[in-house]
């Protein structure tokens, strides 16, 4: 065992480690700070000068909302996100309840197929889905943007959690003559609230940030979501960097503010997506 000079348990190596960690944290935050500050300038160059920042000047935001269709896009994104969260929670918790607490022939085999579908990436199925939506005249509708968010992941996630709901509780409710739908809504749903919060956050972030599908499924500017509108901004006005940064800020701010308030649930909800296996 070598003896090192340490100050309060900090070796030179761990000080280096600390510096690297702090440096990376700064690199993580700096672009967003830059984005935010830049959105309050009228700078014609990408360099940020502190003298250019004017926090009373909202003209970039006003322009992006009124002239670049961000008002409508924000509204669209909100509708799609809320719709996705509600639909995914309702449908996934129903299915999870059916799989976990009911018996029907072929149940486990079907669930295995559900798990297999998790391996299918959306980019591989988007062309047939697009064709299908086109034939059902659903392109450029909220339906096409919302309905595609449902997948087997939510079912899997809630089923895992529902294993903790005691069968005896449901049986005694049944014996007391409680109708089936009330057992589900009044007993099961309140018990699985924590996992529903995670699923809502997961769905929220995925839906708010999704880009490729809205890019394909919306062709009229009325139906663009925020990410699509933001992607078009770079083509419109290359020299107005403040404007682009205002657009990026709007798209970033909604999940960020939620993250500030619900940090723990956010990290859990998003980290869940990796723990499928």
């Amino acid at each position: 065992m070598k003896k090192r000079k340490t100050v309060g348990g900090w070796t030179p190596l761990s000080v280096l480690g600390l510096c690297l960690v702090i440096l990376f944290a700064v690199v993580c935050a700096a672009p967003f700070l830059y984005m935010f500050l830049m959105s309050f300038t009228q700078s014609k160059t990408p360099a940020l000068r502190l003298a250019d920042i004017d926090f009373t000047d909202f003209s970039n935001y006003i322009q992006v909302f009124t002239r670049n269709g961000f008002f409508r896009a924000t509204l669209n994104s909100c509708v799609v996100v809320i719709g996705s969260c509600v639909l995914n929670c309702v449908i996934s918790s129903m299915a999870a309840y059916g799989f976990e607490k009911k018996n029907f022939p072929g149940k486990e085999a079907l669930f295995q197929i559900y798990l297999l579908t998790l391996m299918i990436p959306g980019q591989v199925t988007m062309i047939p889905v697009f064709i299908m939506m086109d034939q059902m005249h659903l392109l450029n509708t909220y339906t096409s943007l919302i309905i595609t968010i449902v997948n087997a992941f939510g079912v899997f996630l809630i089923r895992q959690f529902m294993k903790g709901v005691p069968d005896e509780l449901l049986e005694s409710a049944q014996i007391d003559g409680c109708p089936e739908y009330r057992i589900f809504i009044q007993i099961v749903i309140p018990l699985i609230k924590p996992v529903l919060v995670s699923l809502v956050i997961f769905t929220f972030v995925n839906s708010w940030n999704s880009f490729l599908w809205p890019l394909i499924a919306t062709t009229s500017s009325e139906m663009y979501t925020l990410t699509v509108s933001l992607s078009l901004l770079k083509l419109l006005d290359v020299s107005n960097f403040g404007l682009i940064m205002a657009g990026a800020s709007i798209s970033f701010l909604v999940p960020f503010v939620l993250y500030l308030f619900l940090q723990r649930q956010f990290v859990e909800g998003i980290a869940l997506s990796g723990i499928k296996g």
Binding site: A29, P31, N209, F211, K234, A248, F252, F256
Partner: peptide, 19 residues
Amino acid sequence: VMFIPVIASGVSAAAVWRV
């Protein structure tokens, strides 16, 4: 802080980095 880029959309992160 290191989790912030995770919650941002790829589109807005790329828009900022592009500049």
